[in-house]
Simulated scan of single mutants.
Amino acid sequence: MRRTVEPAEVWTGPSGAPERLVWRARRYRVSDTPTPLVGPADWWHPFDGHDVAPGRAPLAITGWRFQASADDGETHVFDVGHDGRHWQVFRVFD
């Protein structure tokens, strides 16, 4: 696993799940079912210090993990997220 924060271009389908990726000037196609990565919803941050029993903070999709392959067969698993303006690659698993 390589930890990184690098820009990427990601194309998504109607559900918001990634379908294609350009990273380091290489094109990849998603070759499995993307898994949503979740974390506390942004709107919840003002309430972080409050007790939410019985339960926990509401969750939102914060990124995606998926396997993607280039035309020559090079394949990686990517963790990506969107910061509101740009897509970024956070982790790459070889």
Rank of each mutant, 00 (worst) to 15 (best):
A17V: 09
E19A: 06
E19R: 10
E19Q: 07
E19D: 11
R20K: 13
L21G: 05
L21V: 06
W23T: 13
W23L: 02
R24F: 01
A25R: 06
A25T: 15
R26T: 15
R26Y: 14
R27E: 07
R27M: 11
R27I: 09
Y28E: 08
Y28I: 09
V30N: 05
T33Q: 12
T33H: 13
P34A: 01
P34S: 10
T35P: 01
L37R: 14
L37T: 11
G39K: 02
G39I: 08
G39D: 06
G39V: 13
P40D: 13
P40A: 07
A41P: 07
A41V: 04
D42E: 14
W43G: 00
W43K: 08
W44G: 04
W44T: 03
P46K: 06
P46W: 06
F47V: 08
D48T: 13
D48M: 04
D48H: 06
G49H: 06
H50Q: 09
V52S: 00
V52E: 08
A53L: 09
P54S: 05
P54M: 08
G55R: 00
G55V: 05
G55T: 01
G55N: 03
R56N: 04
A57R: 15
A57L: 01
L59Y: 12
L59A: 14
A60F: 03
A60R: 01
A60L: 00
I61L: 13
I61D: 01
I61V: 15
T62M: 02
G63P: 10
G63L: 11
R65F: 14
F66L: 05
Q67A: 08
Q67S: 12
A68Q: 04
A68I: 03
S69H: 11
S69Y: 06
A70F: 03
A70D: 04
A70Y: 00
A70T: 08
A70P: 00
D72A: 10
D72E: 13
E74G: 03
T75Q: 14
H76C: 06
V77L: 00
V77W: 06
V77K: 02
D79M: 01
V80D: 04
G81M: 13
G81A: 09
G81E: 12
G81Q: 12
H82E: 00
D83Y: 03
D83V: 02
D83R: 03
D83E: 11
G84F: 01
G84S: 10
H86Q: 04
H86P: 01
H86R: 15
W87M: 08
W87N: 06
Q88T: 13
V89Y: 08
V89D: 08
